[in-house]
Simulated scan of single mutants.
Amino acid sequence: MIRWVLAFLLGAQMVAADVVTPTRTLRPGTLITVQDLTIRDGAHDGAFDRITDVAGQEARVALYAGRPIAFDAIGPPAIVNRNQIVPLSFRTSGLSITTEGRAMERGGVGDRIRIMNLQSRATLFGLVQADGTIKVTQ
């Protein structure tokens, strides 16, 4: 209440906002649950303001207790792990090629990751699909 009175008296504009913060430090790769999160007062650009947007996601970097969770700090849970053998598919103009590759990075659905074709040893890029296959894009 005092901060609102001070803001009014000083002519400053303060915006009340909520931010989502972890209740404990979360390591990269941790699946975030509702129990790991809390809402705190404070405005922070580029941070989540709803627990439902964060729960079920995976920490991409270390998330520290009490600090706002930035948009780029989390993402969909990884379904492909580094060095995992994954099916590759490439389709264009009626041509369809399927083979196996090795994932060079971890990735969740929709992530663009590097993969190595096991036949040619060429490094390619592809998008992780919901079924764990990689759709080659380059």
Rank of each mutant, 00 (worst) to 15 (best):
V61E: 03
I113R: 00
A73S: 15
P87G: 07
D41M: 12
L9V: 13
G132L: 06
L6H: 10
Q138M: 13
A130D: 06
G42V: 06
K135R: 13
I32D: 01
S89N: 14
T99C: 14
R60G: 00
D131G: 04
Y64M: 11
A62I: 10
R50G: 04
L10G: 12
D45K: 13
L10A: 15
A16Y: 15
S96A: 12
A70M: 15
D36Y: 04
A73H: 02
R67F: 14
G108V: 00
G107S: 06
T98E: 10
L95N: 13
L26W: 03
T99S: 08
N83W: 15
P28I: 03
V136I: 14
A12V: 10
V5S: 14
T99Q: 07
R102H: 06
V5E: 13
I32M: 05
T25A: 08
T52S: 15
W4S: 14
R67I: 11
G46W: 06
R50T: 07
R24H: 10
R60P: 02
G108T: 00
G101H: 05
W4G: 12
M116V: 14
G101N: 05
A130S: 14
T23A: 10
L124W: 05
D36M: 09
V15P: 06
I32A: 04
A55Q: 08
A73M: 08
M104A: 09
L9N: 13
R40Y: 05
G42W: 05
D49T: 14
A130N: 09
G107Y: 00
I51P: 06
V54E: 01
A62D: 07
D53T: 04
R102M: 13
P68V: 08
Q138G: 11
V15T: 15
D45R: 12
D18S: 08
G110I: 03
L6M: 15
R106P: 01
I69L: 07
R112G: 01
A59R: 01
R114C: 04
A59V: 06
V136L: 06
L31A: 08
I85R: 11
E105C: 01
R50M: 11
R106L: 03
I69S: 01
H44S: 14
I113Y: 00
N117M: 12
N83C: 09
S96V: 15
V80R: 00
A65H: 07
T98H: 12
A55G: 06
T21I: 08
T99A: 13
N117I: 06
P76A: 08
I79E: 00
I115Q: 00
A70C: 10
R112K: 12
G75C: 07
V86Y: 01
R3K: 15
Q13F: 12
N83M: 11
L26K: 03
T38P: 03
L118V: 07
T123P: 05
L26A: 04
A17H: 10
